[in-house]
């Protein structure tokens, strides 16, 4: 699973710690999601989508979609 979290975060000039605070998770969680080492659950994905005022599909894409 790939994601645009780093880009979306950079657009808002948020650090990983800022995003972690907004999501009420640890900074390690944000880092792991950004680097693709951890796929968030559906509730956390919805939380991210709401926070960035977009859809889950706009943030997360499967590897095959990314390559297409």
């Amino acid at each position: 699973m790939k994601n645009r979290l780093r880009v979306l975060r950079a657009e808002r000039a948020w650090s990983q710690a800022d995003l972690a605070d907004r999501l009420a998770v640890s900074r390690q969680s944000v880092n792991a999601i950004e680097t693709g080492r951890f796929d968030p659950s559906l509730p956390l994905a919805f939380k991210l989508a709401r926070l960035f005022d977009t859809t889950i599909e706009a943030i997360f894409t499967t590897d095959s979609e990314f390559g297409a």
Partner: peptide
């Protein structure tokens, strides 16, 4: 634990 990543670790 509310942080699912930490829970996994």
């Amino acid at each position: 634990e509310t942080d699912e990543f930490v829970r996994m670790l």
